[in-house]
Design a protein around this nucleic acid. Structure first.
Lengths: 343, 343
DNA sequence: ATGAAAGCGCTAACAA
DNA sequence: TTGTTAGCGCTTTCAT
C-alpha cells in the first residue's frame, strides 16, 4: 500500500533508455525507433506508467482542460447540453472543468479569473452574461471563449445560439394561422439575448399580420416567476385574457400549463393555446404534449466544440464566429393546429 | 494584444522582493510581514497576477481537482446532484472535472485511468459500477474515491446512498396500508445496489404482511424500457393486473404513469396506485403529483464532500465510510392515501 | 534516433 | 521574516 508515483524516469531506467526517449514515445508527433518504442511501452505497462497531464501542461502550455460556466441546471436543456459537450470534448482528448455561477451578475468575473488560474485551453460560457472585462482578460491570456445559448454583440466573442429570431417568428406565424386574436407572451430574463431575440422575432411576425402582443408577463426563465405571471395574465374574464400564449422556454411553459389547467381550470388548447421553446424531454411527455420550437442541442454543441478547437489548435487566431442554428417547430397538442397545417 | 503570462517572478521584481516572498503572500499558511504583503499585493494587482494552479499542483501534489464520473444525465436527480456537488466543492476551493462514462461496463476502468492522469485529489463515482481494479489503482495512487448513489460492498470503498432498504419498506407499508392486494414492482438495472436494496426492503415489508410481489417488470432505470414493462404488466384484464405498482425511480414512474393514463386509459390512482423513488422536480408537477420517496440530495452531497475532504486533508487515511441517508415518503396524489394516514 | 540539459511556474526546505 | 536553492514531471532544444 505504498503510494507509488511512477514517473517517466522510472520507466526510462527499467527500459534502459533516457528519460526523453520515454517522453517521445508518449508524445504524438515524436520520433523513436521501433525498438525504443517497444522497450518503453513494455516497461511502462509493467510499472503502470501514464504521463502526468499536469506536468505536460506546464511545459507545453496546453492543459487539455475546457472551463465551463453554468448558471441554471434546473432547465433540462443545460444538463443535456453539458453531457453532449463533455462527451464530444472527451472524444477529442479534452475534459470539462465545471464552474457554477450564481445568478449574481458581478460574480461571473471572479469565476472567470478562477478558471484562468487553471490554465484552461478554452472557456464555454453557458447562458451567463459577459462583461467586457472578461473578454479582455481572456484575450490577454490567449484563451478562446465561446458563449453558448447567449451572446453579447458589442464584444468580439464567438457565440452559438439557435436562431431565436426566426424561432420567435415561426411561433407567431403558427399561432396566427391558428386564428388566434389575443396572443400573449411570457418573457424570460430581459438581460438575455435569447429572450430579446425570441420576442423580437415574435413581435415582428405579429406586426406583419397587423397584430400586437395582447398581454405580456415576465417569467425570468424561472418556473415560479412564470407561474405568477400566468396567474396575473389569465385569472380574468374570457374577453380580457389571451386565447394563446408563447412562453419563451419550455421550463416555464410547463409551469404555465399547470397553472392554466389545475389552478384556473382552463382547457389547453381548448381555451388557451400554449407554445414553448427548447423542446426539452418533458415537453414530449403526453401529459404536456407541448408544441415548441426545438433547439438542436447536438448541432449547437458541435459548433461550439468546432469553434473552440479551431481557435486552440490553429494559433493564428481565427476570428470570432457568431452562429445561429435554425430549429423546427415541433407541433404537438398544446396549441390549436391550423387547418391543413403542414410544414 | 500580446499574450501576457504574468509570473510570480514578474511580481517579485516589481515589488522589489524575492520570488518566494510572492509565493508566501499567496500561500494560506505562510509568514510575511505586513509590509511585504502590501507591496506584493499592490504589484500583483497592477500586473493582474494570479498564481498558476497547475504549477502549484505539481510541486504541492494537490491539484484541487475532483474527478466526477457520471453515466446518466437524463434522470434529473443527477444534474441536480452535480450542481450541488460542484457548488459545495467550489466553496471549499475545489473544482469538478467531468468524465462521462458510457454505459459500457469495461469502459469505466479506462475512464478512471484518464482521471488519474489529471492528478485529481479525489474521485466521485456517480452511479457507475466499480471494479476491483479501480479500487486498487486509486488506492495505489493515493486518491480517495467515494461512490455516490451506488455501492459495491466487497471493496473497501466509501459510498453514500439513501437508505434504499428502509425506503423500499416505507413504500410497501404505505401501499399495504392503502389496502392494495395485487402489488407490482418495476425494477431498475439489476446490477445496481440501489435497485437491489429498494426491492429487498420492499419485499421484506410485503412478506411481513403475508404478501408477495404480484407482478414484476424490468425498467433498467430507463424510460423507454419502463414503458415496455408497464404495457406488459398492465395491458390485461382487471383481475390479472396489479392495483398498485412501485416503480424504482421517478424517471421511470413518470413514464409508467403516462402509459397507464394515455395508452391504457387507466385512472391513477383510481385504478392503479403508483409510487416512485427520488422525488425529482417533475414529480411535484400537478400533472403527475407523484407519491415518492425523497432522496435527500443535499445531505448526500454534503456527506460525499465531507468524506472526500477528510481523506484528502487528513492524510492519515480515514477508513472508508458507508453512509445511508434516510428519506421521507412524500405523499401526493398518485397513490391511494390510507384512511387517517399521518406520518 | 537518441541523450544531456534547460526550463515551465511554483512551493518548501534551508540558511541567514 | 526573508532570500537562496532545489526540485515537482514533463517537453524540447541542442548536440551527438
Amino acid at each position: 500500500m505504498t503510494e507509488t508515483r511512477v514517473t517517466s524516469l522510472d520507466v526510462a531506467r527499467l527500459a534502459g533508455v533516457s528519460q526523453s526517449a520515454v517522453s517521445r514515445v508518449f508524445t504524438p508527433g515524436a520520433s523513436a525507433s521501433k525498438k525504443t518504442v517497444e522497450k518503453v511501452r513494455k516497461a511502462a505497462l509493467e510499472l503502470g506508467y501514464r504521463p502526468n497531464v499536469l506536468a505536460r501542461a506546464m511545459v507545453s502550455g496546453k492543459s487539455r482542460i475546457i472551463g465551463l460556466v453554468v448558471a441554471y441546471l434546473e432547465n433540462h436543456f443545460y444538463p443535456d447540453a453539458l453531457g453532449k459537450l463533455s462527451n464530444q470534448l472527451q472524444k477529442r482528448g479534452y475534459h470539462v472543468l465545471i464552474f457554477m455561477a450564481s445568478q449574481t451578475a458581478g460574480d461571473i468575473d471572479a469565476v472567470v479569473e478562477e478558471i484562468l488560474d487553471y490554465q484552461v485551453d478554452g472557456i464555454v460560457l453557458a447562458s451567463v452574461a459577459m462583461s467586457s472585462d472578461i473578454a479582455e482578460r481572456c484575450e490577454q491570456a490567449g484563451v478562446p471563449v465561446v458563449q453558448f445559448n447567449r451572446y453579447e454583440d458589442r464584444e468580439g466573442i464567438s457565440a452559438v445560439t439557435s436562431d431565436n429570431r426566426a424561432g420567435g417568428r415561426k411561433v407567431a406565424e403558427f399561432l396566427l394561422a391558428g386564428g388566434h386574436e389575443r396572443i400573449g407572451y411570457i418573457a424570460g430574463w430581459e438581460g438575455a439575448s435569447t429572450q430579446r431575440d425570441r420576442e423580437a422575432g415574435f413581435r415582428e411576425a405579429l406586426a406583419a399580420a397587423g397584430q400586437g402582443v395582447f398581454a405580456r408577463g415576465i417569467g425570468n426563465f424561472n418556473a415560479e416567476t412564470a407561474r405568477t405571471a400566468a396567474r396575473a395574465m389569465f385569472d380574468l374574464p374570457v374577453a380580457d385574457r389571451p386565447d394563446a400564449v408563447f412562453v419563451s422556454n419550455d421550463h416555464m411553459a410547463i409551469a404555465v400549463m399547470d397553472v392554466l389547467r389545475f389552478e384556473l381550470g382552463l382547457d389547453v388548447p381548448g381555451d388557451v393555446s400554449v407554445v414553448g421553446y427548447d423542446d426539452v424531454p418533458p415537453s414530449a411527455w403526453p401529459a404536456y404534449n407541448l408544441t415548441t420550437l426545438r433547439q438542436r442541442a447536438n448541432l449547437m454543441v458541435e459548433e461550439t466544440v468546432g469553434i473552440l478547437l479551431d481557435q486552440i489548435e490553429c494559433s493564428d487566431s481565427a476570428p470570432p464566429r457568431m452562429i445561429a442554428i435554425d430549429g423546427p417547430l415541433i407541433v404537438r397538442g398544446s396549441a390549436r393546429i391550423p387547418e391543413g397545417w403542414t410544414s
